[in-house]
């Protein structure tokens, strides 16, 4: 007996989705790029940083944290999307001042993605690593961030990897130059540094960002794409879908800090009216919305 769509487990929905719209988008937009990058020198982790380039000073902090990684088995794909007013040139100039060995890890793609979701998909298409993690210029990483994933993949290959990240409020400090300063406003919030299963409903909404590394198989083999028409929900959706087929392994290590900025919306909020980190009630409505959208995709509606 064929079940109604909303009764099917998510894994089954994913199988049917790949036969439809998502597969068409993958083939038309990304398959060629994936093929171009196959056979190139590979690494463990591809770090995709999708940025509008508005805050090079914050991006510099993130890049410095990547330079400081004890495990250097990674590459960086910097996707500048919606580049405005020369932001892309500012970013390129900043990259050109980095150390020579570190610059060689960075590839830049610009002007080809109109949304954060599209930027993340482009980053995945260009990726040469076994795993992918998505950062923003709000992320600060401890020196064992890559290492925690790399060690976690042993005996858990193919699973989504999750480490803990703290949250912390920062403040921009105006300066006389075009390079603002910054400082912390308060101590770190460790409320998300708990096992996934104990977080209850809406856990996915609180776990996106630097604490998650996805196996590239989800993109390359299953053709799972980030939804390009929405904002931060795209990552939540991706985690929900990926989790249903790959499962999650928790390293239980605390590996970094995601900054929020006094007086500013979170970078992952700027392109959507929904919020990525929500109290439980709002998480439920977001998950319902995502579930409804996934079912709608299956019926051929966006």
């Amino acid at each position: 007996m064929q079940l109604e769509n909303q009764e099917r487990p998510l894994g089954v929905l994913d199988q049917e989705l790949t036969q439809g719209e998502e597969e068409r988008v993958y083939e038309s937009k990304y398959a060629r790029i994936v093929a171009e990058n196959q056979g190139k020198s590979s690494c463990f982790l591809s770090v995709v940083i999708a940025t509008e380039g508005k805050h090079p000073e914050r991006l510099q902090d993130t890049l410095l944290c990547l330079q400081g990684q004890a495990d250097q088995d990674f590459e960086i794909i910097l996707v500048i999307f919606r580049g405005q007013g020369g932001n892309d040139q500012v970013i390129r100039q900043m990259i050109s001042t980095q150390g020579e060995a570190f610059q060689k890890k960075i590839r830049i793609a610009e002007g080809k993605a109109g949304s954060r979701g599209a930027a993340m998909n482009l980053g995945m298409a260009m990726a040469r690593g076994d795993y992918v993690a998505f950062l923003t210029e709000d992320d600060l990483l401890f020196d064992h961030w890559v290492q925690s994933f790399h060690e976690g993949v042993e005996n858990h290959e193919g699973m989504i990897l999750r480490s803990y990240t703290l949250a912390q409020e920062w403040s921009k400090i105006e300066s006389k130059t075009d390079w603002p300063g910054s400082t912390t406003v308060s101590g770190p919030d460790a409320s998300a540094c708990v096992p996934f299963e104990t977080m209850g409903e809406g856990a996915e909404c609180r776990c996106i960002g630097a604490g998650i590394a996805f196996p590239m198989d989800l993109f390359r083999d299953r053709h799972f794409l980030m939804n390009e028409g929405i904002g931060s929900e795209a990552e939540v959706e991706y985690l929900i879908r990926g989790r249903s087929v790959a499962g999650i392994y928790e390293t239980t290590r605390t590996v970094g800090i995601r900054r929020s900025w006094q007086g500013e919306a979170k970078v992952t909020e700027r392109h959507t009216e929904e919020k990525a980190s929500l109290p439980e009630g709002e998480s439920r409505s977001l998950l319902q919305k995502i579930g409804s959208r996934l079912r709608g995709m299956m019926r051929g509606n966006k």
Binding site: E57, Q60, D61, L64, C65, Q67, G68, A70, F142, D143, H144, Y164, L166, I173, S175, T177, W179, P180, G181, S182, G187, P188, D189, A190, C193, T252, T254, I257
Partner: peptide, 14 residues
């Protein structure tokens, strides 16, 4: 304005 990387970590309680 002058950020430098110093390899320090915080615990899971911050």
């Amino acid at each position: 304005q002058a950020g430098v990387f110093h390899a320090r970590r915080l615990s899971d309680t911050g």
